[in-house]
Design a protein around this nucleic acid. Structure first.
Lengths: 192, 192
DNA sequence: CCCTGTTTTGACTGTTCGTTCCAAACTCAG
DNA sequence: CTGAGTTTGGAACGAACAGTCAAAACAGGG
């Protein structure tokens, strides 16, 4: 019979994700998406449904690649304390590399979470997993003697999450290296 | 001659500010503004210019009232360390009071700063002043013996700013009391 | 080479956007 | 009461928006 798809679904989704990431949901028009994804309007609607569905799919992909994949990589290639430091260092490196798009989960938390429960659930889950990552690293660090036992892991993890979010917000508006470095250094102060 | 203005400029501006605060810039239509401000479309354009000009005026007003006025009040009614604690406590109290609008400066930093230099300048100035507030309080606290001398005021202030921003972001998406309280408690950990 | 069924395509829909404009309503000085 | 100057409400603008559709382009099976 017929004919396979001529464009790559995943590649197109990645492009859409990048545009939503840089511009936000409202500020991205379907025309922007048609152009950046390199596929036709009709194909877009046939493959991804409406704009909101496409955004949700892009957000889920971001969560899988840039949050889950990223965390897993950090855990594997560093010790507990090193993984926490690397999380902040990599966020700063992205800014130094010229990207001031911040983090799509954080951006979405502000733009859409208060007005869309389904999207909020995705964002909340991603942020909770980051909190859990920090918490796990702290507890492992304590077991390994890298982090003092008097640190309350749950509270400190939430402090690190909040510092990290602040860093991502600042990197969109005040991407000065010294400012971001100071913030990252304070992460260490929560673990002493 | 004729007839004084029939609507109150400042009151209308406050209403507009509230709508931008809750919904963001893009998601607020001129129709929303006409309705929430209670004035006519023509009067709106005659008094405030276009949408962006109105937003900038509202943002400046927010900065004057909710950032500058707020900081001044904190400085006057608390000691150095108490002022820092009160800053976080009041942000949490706002959430408990039912508002999950966060902070207009933070919301704008994410939505518009990367794409609008004039707006970015306002946001950056407001955030820098908050940083300065934290820095001043730390140094005064050190002079008063409330805060250890080994704390580096500039770095710790940036950490507090970042924690504060994170708190504001989380309050829009995960306004759980225990989470926000943990974050506020970590502010103290940066000052020990 | 034609038939079949899917994909691609770009024109098209109705709606909403920000903005402009004008005539009617109105207040107050003369 | 009259005239001057403002505010008002709503109609109207072109542009941009999200979303739809029918026809053309296409690959493989007969």
């Amino acid at each position: 019979m017929p004919w396979e798809k001529q464009f790559d679904h995943d590649a197109a989704l990645s492009k859409a994700m990048g545009t939503f990431w840089a511009q936000g949901y409202d500020a991205t028009s379907m025309q922007d998406l048609v152009e950046c994804m390199g596929i036709n309007r009709g194909s877009l609607y046939a493959s991804f449904g409406d704009k909101r569905s496409l955004f949700i799919e892009a957000l889920r992909r971001y969560d899988a690649v840039y949050r889950e994949g990223w965390v897993n990589r950090l855990v594997k290639s560093h010790g507990p304390r090193g993984a926490i430091a690397a999380a902040f260092d990599e966020a700063i490196a992205a800014v130094q590399g010229g990207s001031n798009d911040g983090c799509l989960l954080v951006n979405t938390a502000l733009e859409l979470s208060p007005h869309d429960d389904e999207i909020s659930a995705i964002v909340d889950h991603g942020l909770a997993e980051m909190e859990q990552f920090f918490c796990d690293m702290i507890e492992r660090g304590q077991a390994a003697g890298e982090i003092p036992a008097h640190v309350v892991s749950v509270d400190a993890a939430r402090g690190l999450l909040s510092l990290f979010i602040g860093l991502r917000v600042l990197s969109r508006s005040r991407p000065e290296a010294s400012l971001l470095r100071s913030v990252a250094n304070q992460a260490g102060a929560l673990l002493t």
